[in-house]
Amino acid sequence: MTTVIETKSLSKWYGNVLGLSDVSLEIEAGITGLLGPNGAGKSTFMKLITGQMKPNIGGVTVRGEEVWNNFRLFRKIGFCPEQDAFYEDVTGWEFLTGLLRLYGFRPAEVTGRAARALEIVELTADKDRKIRSYSRGMRQRVKFAQSVAHDPDIIILDEPLSGLDPLGKRRLIRLVKDFQSEGKTIIVSSHVLPEIEAMTSRIIMIHQGKILAQGDIHGIRDLIERYPHMISVRCADARAVAARFVQDPSILKMSFGPDARSLVVETHNRDAFFSRLQSVVLETGIEVEEISSPDDNLQAVFDYLVVR
């Protein structure tokens, strides 16, 4: 895959506040999740890669072109900011058409694109209402619409799912995945990890302006082998299985569910545990109903990397 966005030693600070520190990344086409708590530097990163801010050190290239001061490149980029960014007194239609005019589209194209964008976010019926009267979810949708209305190759979405109801989130996630299938490059930021997980397994974790990890969620999980893996085993006799593992040095902790049918194990060596579990099952003949890894999700990885 070819690199679409590349940052080299990207650093940005505001006075004595560090926004981003020495970030070197290569982002390919498809969906990339940008994860981090509030104030981690996600928005700074997004504004740097959309050319809205000049880095103090380093640079950003989009498809090989330097993005800063290259305003023609902005045609290829769609940006959905985290905060509301519209006049309350204009209608959704006026908001979208006004912004589309900035691209120099002909009037017929402006109306066609605005209508299409409103249709995909299902705001056509409310297009003539003032934004002042829009709900939080509708505002989020119209903001998303403005970021895709000009058919950009690269879509940068800063917390796009915040404020949406579950159905709205599902629709937007589906829409983002549709864009991915068109070969577009999408960067989605969030601090709500399951939301990102629903869209992509390719993530960048950012904290205090630094990149903590980048890659596939499972790959990142492997990077943090020094932290324990949590594995849940549901079977007919959880205590019998536990007894077989008590002497295993890779096991750090074991606990039981309320019905004594589930065993939760923390281990340093997941592969060794699974290998041993197979032997135990064969030896004891205990029927295993389910094996899951409750912490093999972004929340767990994030907690390990950031909190601990």
Partner: peptide, 21 residues
Amino acid sequence: EKGYYHWEGRLTESRFPWWPI
């Protein structure tokens, strides 16, 4: 669920980019 349809139009350079403002 609605997918996205590409616009087939051509991107043109605006001679008066300040006008929409």
